[in-house]
Amino acid sequence: MSTIANIEIPADEFALHDTLVAVSDLELDVERVVAHDDERVMPFIWVSSDHMDDVERAFENDASIENLELLSDLGEERLYRMDWTTEIEVVVQILVEADATVLDAFGTDGRWEFRILFPEREALSMTHEFCEENGLTIDIQNIYEMDADRHGRFGLSEAQHETLIAAFEHGHYEVPRDITLDDLADELDISHQALSERFRRAYSTLIENTLIVGVGDEE
C-alpha cells in the first residue's frame, strides 16, 4: 500500500546548508525535484528573502549546487533551477532507489522538511535503514497509509473525508449556506456535537498537512 511520510533532515546534512546559514531569513520551497542519476538532483525552487543580493552571493559560494538558472523574478521571491551535487544521498535514495515522489520540500532555519509519497511502506523502511547505515539523520514526523480513496494523501480519516465532501456537495460552504449544521448532521446520521468535532479535527489535519508544511513557529 502506498504511504505518505513527513520527514525532517538537518540542513547541515543536506544541500544548500551554506546558503541557509549565510542568509538568516531565507526560505526555500521546492516546486519540483527530479534525479538525473545517483550523483545529481535537479530541483526547481522558490526562494524567498528580504536580502536577495545576499542570496545570490551565497549561491555563488555554495559548493553543493551547480548550473544555477533564474527562471522568474518577483522581487522578494524568485524561482530558480539548479543542480544539487553534494549532500544529496537521502534524496537520491528516495527518488532513485525507493522510486518515491517528493510532494513538498521546504528548507529554512536549520532544517529541511519533506512530504514524500512512497509506492509501498517497505520503501520507507528501506530509506530509514539506508540513513541509519550511512550515518544520516532522518526524523519521521508522520506516516499516512494510502487506501483506494485519495483522502489518505492529506492524513484525513475516511469519516472526515466523507464529512467534508458531503458538506461541500450540500452547499455548506456557500454564502449563504444551503444547509445548516443540524440538517447536515441529520444527513450524516450523527449528532451536532459529533459533526462539529469531526469538522474541527478535519480542518486541523488539512491545515497541518497542506498550509503548515514548512512554516516554522512564529511569535
Rank of each mutant, 00 (worst) to 15 (best):
A105E: 13
R201P: 00
E31Q: 12
R32W: 15
M1Y: 07
M42S: 13
E31K: 10
E8C: 07
I165E: 02
I165K: 10
Y80M: 10
I207F: 09
H128V: 15
F154L: 14
H151V: 14
D182P: 00
L156Y: 02
L70E: 09
V30M: 14
S64A: 07
S72W: 14
T85N: 11
F118H: 04
I4F: 10
E87S: 12
F118N: 01
T19C: 03
T210M: 05
L95I: 03
S204N: 12
S24A: 14
T19M: 06
A202Y: 09
P43D: 09
L195E: 09
A15L: 07
F14T: 05
I9Q: 05
D139R: 05
L68P: 00
F168P: 00
I7K: 06
A22L: 10
I190Q: 12
Y203N: 09
T137H: 12
Y80Q: 02
I116Q: 08
E133L: 15
L79Q: 05
R40C: 13
M126Y: 14
E120W: 10
G214D: 08
S64N: 03
T163C: 10
I4M: 14
I116H: 09
L26V: 09
I88K: 01
Y173T: 01
A123F: 06
E60M: 13
I45R: 08
M146E: 08
Y144P: 00
I94V: 15
L156W: 01
R40P: 00
V215G: 01
I140H: 04
D37H: 07
Y203W: 10
G214P: 10
A5Y: 04
D109C: 07
N61S: 13
Y144D: 08
E13H: 06
H161R: 05
L95F: 01
D182F: 13
D99C: 02
E208G: 05
A148F: 08
F118V: 01
H128N: 13
F199H: 08
F44Q: 14
F14N: 11
G171D: 00
I4C: 10
R40N: 12
E39M: 10
A123P: 08
A5K: 04
V96I: 14
A148H: 12
E27G: 05
W112Y: 09
V91P: 00
A194I: 03
E120H: 13
M1Q: 06
H51D: 15
A63M: 12
S72R: 15
G152N: 11
R150D: 05
H17P: 05
V91M: 12
E56R: 14
L70N: 01
G155W: 07
L28K: 10
Q160L: 06
D54W: 00
L103P: 02
E60G: 07
I140M: 06
E89R: 13
L184E: 06
E27I: 06
E76G: 15
G216R: 12
E8V: 04
L184N: 01
D25R: 01
R150P: 01
G110H: 09
L136C: 06
Y173N: 03
V30L: 14
P10N: 08
M52W: 06
L74R: 05
L164T: 07
M42D: 03
I45Q: 04
V55R: 06
